[in-house]
């Protein structure tokens, strides 16, 4: 059985904890996962001209985010059919509904008590999700995986 799920992300390790939690509670299901990020493109004409979704997303990756994402992929290899990080560039209800329908999203998981970080042109589209007629599940995190919260810590390395 395959299920397409969507999790809003702001490229922090914290937002990946939701994914880890969802996957650990759903054995025997293969997931098509979409990590969705919202950012409005810049108004500048030159930036619009060279706007590429892939590049915007790639620039957002931080080492700790990549590391945590790879850890999750390895941990739940059998439960992940595919994992894509995508972005929408319009903060409107209709655009979101359109996107979700196109992707065939079956369920949305959001972080129970945390809001997405929205630096720069990024926006938090989570409040629009409840109008989309797709079940939205709020995930409360247990302190089960401390490793995540520590990945982004400031390590002084013995040698490099």
């Amino acid at each position: 059985m395959t299920k397409t799920i969507l999790i809003p992300t702001d490229f922090t390790v914290r937002s990946l904890q939701v994914l880890s939690e969802v996957l650990s509670n759903a054995p025997f299901i293969r997931h098509k996962i979409i990590l969705l990020y919202g950012e409005q493109p810049s108004d500048s004409i030159t930036e619009m001209l060279f706007f590429r979704k892939e590049k915007v997303i790639r620039d957002k990756y931080k080492p700790e985010f990549t590391e945590a994402l790879e850890m999750i992929k390895n941990r739940f290899e059998s439960r992940i059919e595919s994992l894509v990080v995508d972005m929408i560039s319009q903060n409107s209800r209709s655009a979101l509904v359109e996107y979700l329908n196109n992707q065939g999203v079956a369920e949305i998981f959001v972080h129970g008590n945390l809001k997405l970080k929205t630096p720069g042109n990024a926006f938090d589209f989570t409040q629009n999700l409840k109008y989309c007629n797709i079940p939205v599940t709020s995930v409360t995190l247990e302190q089960h995986s401390f490793a995540f919260s520590e990945i982004s810590g400031n390590f002084s390395f013995a040698y490099n």
Binding site: S20, S24, M71, I72, N74, R75, F76, E77, S78, H144, S145, F146, A147
Partner: peptide, 9 residues
């Protein structure tokens, strides 16, 4: 020992 992130492979 916390193996909650132990890879499947």
């Amino acid at each position: 020992l916390d193996f909650s992130l132990l890879p499947e492979n």
